[in-house]
Design a protein around this nucleic acid. Structure first.
Length: 502
RNA sequence: GUCCCCGUCGUCUAGCCCGGCCUAGGACAUCGCCCUUUCACGGCGGUAACACGGGUUCAAAUCCCGUCGGGGACGCCA
């Protein structure tokens, strides 16, 4: 135990856009692995692409990760023993190391121009060869390099890929091998002096003592280059774990055109973080036995295993995410649901900015009634339109209601119900039951014929939540100073009969 | 094109490493039934898969080879 090296993993996004589900899943797997094994989780910002990197994205990145429920032990915001954690702040290291590699002949200056390289590339493609670097500048004499550089000719620095095949172990795919000829001598320093991604990751991972590199499998083909770099540096390569790609329903790599794919999107539509985390964990990983689906973050930390991660790509299934979200929505304490749902109702203009105690209490009831019926919080105001937006004319005109309102007994049911409701006094569920039985007796209508017209009269639709909970909310709501008046049962019935032409 | 990775129900997957316990398990979706004096919620059931072809073996979803299909990488992007 004492000799066991402490596990160190990192999540290294570039701040060039919103945090995507693919990256979020990578971040999650790193986090789970670190937390389970008592390791260190490092957050590092890869901003060597100055053109596309923006600080606002970095800020949002951290927010999104925190919202999901992840945290890190070292990073740009919290610091740590291997600071700085932003690549743009680490240029010295990259330059110094590159110079060292050149002086050790493990890397060399390359004077080839981009145009030249492009020509070579096209030629190789046309001849059906792997488009790798020709090696033109590999054997340049030190003297020639010296004079050309002195003459101001721009030069990039390339790493020399060794002659032997490059192998590495991947925790999800096993042993992988690349033939030396199939990998180019990669540029590690651009001719403008800026280091290249494939180079900086390795330097940083090595400097930061990263033991396990868990990342998307789009990096799998880059790995031989990186392994070669470790070799050149005289350092052992870390363990790798390449996670499969997340695809859209069309089996293409998931992207914005598939709809909501950023973490912020899901948060904004009212998906609970624990639901998203649970779903993401299930994309590519399954517990022993493979029969359990719901896991709290704690349980995930306990059960997770990199060895049980599947190598095959997975299609993102919104329906299953929604199922999990419904599951967690039902488990969510009322206070939390209240806090999360309130903004949606305020935006819809249904609940005031600073709801009174009475209104809040009533709103709790509304949420208890409607929350079991939605996939995401965002759908709540629309579901609540049965309380806030009753319209007799719309209900009568709705094509969906035509069949239910077209029955032989419809009019007599409506009339009988209306007759019995006109008296005053509180309108309770018990009262409602009594009336319904009387209406049944009087009209001979039962089942659908009985309930559908009444339901349409009260909420404008033949389907909706149970009356026992709905009715008291209607009654109480009608007495509250809401921005949008909630009509009482009597108001609804009166309005409906006034417009009912038959 | 070349290289690498991947291929079990429509979808996520268990099983594959260490062949027999697999008449292939679970979940989402879908369908049906029950509950509800109606609908939804909920409960219970059903349909549905080892990509294909060759081996190896007494025995293959599991091992080997090939084919096909999908994805990724081939950049002075990350």
């Amino acid at each position: 135990m004492a000799s066991e090296k402490r596990i160190r993993v990192r999540f290294a996004p570039s701040p060039t856009g919103q945090l995507h589900v693919g990256n979020a899943r990578t971040a999650l797997f790193n986090w789970l692995f670190a937390r389970q094994r008592g390791g260190v989780n490092v957050l590092r910002i890869e901003d060597t692409d100055v053109e596309r990197s923006e600080t606002r994205y970095e800020t949002q990145l951290l927010e999104d990760l925190k919202w999901l429920g992840l945290d890190w032990d070292e990073g740009p915001d919290v610091g740590g023993p291997y600071a700085p954690y932003r690549q743009s702040d680490r240029m010295q290291i990259y330059h110094a190391t590159a110079d060292r590699l050149v002086s050790e002949q493990k890397a060399y200056y390359c004077f080839c121009t981009p145009e030249e390289l492009e020509r070579d590339r096209e030629l190789a493609l046309k001849e059906g060869r792997q488009p790798v670097y020709s090696g033109k500048c590999r054997g340049l004499s030190p003297a020639e390099v010296q004079t050309r550089r002195a003459g101001g000719e721009p030069a990039a620095i390339r790493l020399r890929i060794p002659e032997h095949p490059i192998r590495f172990h991947d925790m999800v795919r096993g042993d992988v091998e690349f033939a030396s000829e199939s990998v180019s001598d990669p540029i590690i320093m651009r001719s403008n002096g800026m280091p290249v991604y494939n180079y900086v990751v390795v330097i940083d991972d090595a400097e930061m003592k990263i033991t396990h590199v868990i990342r998307g499998d789009d990096h799998l083909s880059n790995t031989p280059k990186q392994v070669a770099l470790y070799e050149a540096l005289g350092l052992p390569a870390p363990e790798f774990a390449h996670l499969s790609t997340i695809l859209g329903p069309d089996r293409e790599r998931l992207s914005k055109r598939h709809g909501a794919t950023s973490i912020a999107n899901f948060r904004d539509m009212g998906v609970l973080p624990e639901a998203l985390m649970n779903y993401l964990a299930l994309l590519g990983w399954a517990p022993t036995g493979g029969t359990r689906e719901t896991f709290t973050p704690k349980e995930l930390v306990k059960e997770f295993s990199l060895k049980r991660v599947t190598p095959s790509p997975a299609i993102f299934d919104m329906e299953k995410l929604y199922w999990l979200n419904r599951h967690y929505l039902k488990q969510s304490p009322p206070e939390r649901t209240f806090k999360l749902a309130l903004p949606f109702f305020q935006r819809a203009g249904f609940i005031p900015e600073n709801p009174s105690h009475e209104i809040s209490r009533w709103f709790y009831g509304v949420l208890a009634l409607l929350a079991p019926y939605v996939d995401k919080l965002e759908q709540l105001p629309e579901k609540a339109s049965i309380l806030f937006q009753h319209s007799a004319t719309a209900a009568i005109a709705a094509p969906d209601n035509a069949e239910a309102l077209g029955g032989a007994t419809t009019s007599t049911v409506i009339q009988a119900f209306a007759d019995r409701i006109s008296n005053d006094g509180a309108f309770s569920p018990e009262h409602f039951k009594t009336i319904m039985n009387e209406v049944k007796e009087a009209t001979g209508a039962k089942g659908k014929d009985l309930f559908h017209p009444v339901r349409i009269m009260l909420i404008g639709s033949h389907s909706g939540p149970e009356f026992d909970k709905l009715l008291p909310l209607l009654e109480l709501g009608s007495t509250l100073p809401l921005p949008v008046h909630v009509k009482s049962v009597r108001e609804r019935v009166a309005e409906f009969t006034a417009h009912w032409g038959r």
